[in-house]
Design a protein around this nucleic acid. Structure first.
Lengths: 336, 336
DNA sequence: ATATCCTATGTTAACGTTAACAACGAATAG
DNA sequence: CTATTCGTTGTTAACGTTAACATAGGATAT
């Protein structure tokens, strides 16, 4: 592999001038720049990351932490990941994914070492659960971190306003004339699940609609759980005229359950999702849902972590941002 | 962050002696070692990865590549991942996960740069599809690589003998008296799917059993696809007495489909999986399946990539290894 | 015309670690 | 008692890059 020194010798310019060209600095003559760029291409030069890290005391690398459980709500975090990846690609930062295990000391010290050894400059964490062990480590050691998809206390987050979004969805159903509404909720150790469930209850109360706990289905944010538990509910007794699901994947699981019991959507029952994952517009009928700008949230988080890492003055903590949501009207909800 | 120089000053020993202790070298007196170890702990020293990389010209880092689609057969690759992670933890290698996108030039050059910049020493790839774009890059540039879960031509692989394993499974069904057997197959751009499908056909032919293409269900290695397509098959006409599924997740999808049509397993229909993922023993009835030692395959691959990377003489390519499979007898298959 | 400023370029040292070699005293061998 | 070996420790230079400072010549201002 060619080094700056090779380029320097071949062009006759000093290593520093080469370095300036590589880093797009000013104060290089056009002549020098052209000659150096050509030689870089000829020799297939790429800067040595280790040397840079050493001298800059920075790794130009961001770690993205996902938890094993999340992998099951795959569309959700995949979309976020793409946003992060593609944004970071435009900066000169690398991305490393960590899949975190169950609580375990070795991972904890590993996390710290990653930072201490300048292997990683900062972390992005997707929707950690309330009791996620490494969040304490992250916070206690003041490691630059941005959380995506959760408004985690004391952290800098990129999230949506779950309360507002849920009200949007439920009031949409109410406006369509639905007076009996069920809920498919996610795992209760996650902030997003809790916030949406709370808002759901509050919204119905506000509009004087009776809350029937029988119609609360635990879907754990997964397709299969939602499917199975919806099936169970169907086979047990009466149903509401509509369901609000805390994510699309569970909504789709429920829809498949209804279909397999010959319950037509939206003729017999209406269903509303949350997220707007790719799959939602492909299924039959296409799912009406609350769009969460997942891709943009990924991008936004990427920008913010870079900003945070590059800021000398780490105190300038920008606050949690709440991205806008909107109703995406498709065909899974019927007007009564 | 403390450096070797700090430890050196504090203990009075030279930096080289400290380095020797850090790297567990011989020829250090017990006295020196004890003193240095104590100081290392006191100052919370951890070696600087960048400096090491620079001087060693090696990153001590392995990249694990997964494709986006794979994330949907989550249990499968999660188990492998854990094997890899936990094995690598025991060596002094780091692990980085890359989720690969659709074919795209930028990722390709990125891959190469990762190697050229000594950011990564080698790659592990989980079950790439036949036409995966980056496999060519990997092969053309002779990048140290181990493939897991596919016998990819010209690569060094850790796989099972799909032919043998499939014969094991199908002959098990035959031994139980089944004479009409359906297949739930995976995506046909993957070697494991193709090999299992081929072996399935061959095995039936060998035993003079008629092959009914109507009973071939495309499950794409996913729960939902298998579920939906099984439902369709059920609603269309007659069924075989047993199914062989090319992975457990699809088998579970099919089982849930049968159940929702009130077809009892194993009373009315038998089903056999492939993989033995965690979920398989938890469902009702527990799934009879062919155990693939996924975790061990991950471990084995981790050992091999480290070996490959550390070998000066890269020609010593150890050949593809086929791990053993076995039938795990549970309750989803009935004797006719 | 002289002082000042800018532009383009170069020089030196440093980041933290380790390989290769050197040195020194103690133990062992002849 | 001298020569040789061994165990322990230290010295020097190198990995590839960049920050900080230095220099030289040309342009601009007074």
């Amino acid at each position: 592999m060619a080094t700056i020194s090779d380029i320097s010798k071949k062009t006759g310019y000093s290593m520093m001038t080469v370095s300036r060209v590589v880093n797009n600095s000013k104060n290089v003559s056009e002549k020098a720049r052209a000659s150096i760029i050509k030689t870089i291409k000829d020799l297939n030069y790429a800067p040595n990351a280790a040397a840079r890290r050493l001298v800059k005391q920075k790794s130009q690398t961001i770690g993205l932490i996902i938890t094993y459980e999340q992998i099951f709500s795959s569309y959700y975090f995949l979309t976020i990941m793409k946003g992060v990846e593609e944004k970071l690609e435009k900066t000169n930062y690398n991305l490393i994914m960590y899949a975190s295990n169950s609580p375990n000391v070795s991972s904890e010290t590993k996390l710290l070492n990653l930072i201490n050894q300048k292997f990683i400059d900062g972390f992005l964490v997707i929707a950690p659960s309330k009791d996620e062990f490494f969040m304490k480590t992250l916070s206690e050691n003041k490691i630059p971190t941005i959380i995506i998809g959760a408004s985690y206390p004391f952290f800098n987050c990129v999230d949506v306003d779950n309360n507002k979004a849920t009200f949007l969805a439920v009031e949409y159903l109410l406006a369509k004339g639905h007076k009996s509404i069920g809920l498919i909720h996610g795992t209760r150790n996650r902030y997003d699940a809790l916030e949406r469930e709370k808002a759901f209850t509050e919204c119905l109360e506000k509009h004087g609609i009776e809350i029937n706990k029988k119609w609360f289905v635990d879907g754990r944010f997964e397709y299969r759980q939602a499917h199975l538990n919806t099936l169970k509910l169907i086979d047990e007794g009466t149903l509401p005229t509509a369901f609000f699901s805390a994510n699309d994947l569970m909504a789709i699981g429920a829809m498949d359950a209804f279909r397999s019991r010959n319950i037509k959507i939206p003729e017999d029952i209406s269903i509303m999702g949350f997220d707007d994952i790719d799959l939602s517009k492909l299924i039959q009928p296409p799912l009406t849902t609350v769009r969460q700008p997942l891709y943009n949230m990924g991008e936004e988080a990427a920008s913010r972590i870079v900003e945070l890492v590059e800021k000398e003055n780490k105190q300038t903590v920008s606050r949690t941002i709440r991205m806008d949501t909107e109703i995406v009207e498709r065909e899974s909800v019927r007007k009564l």
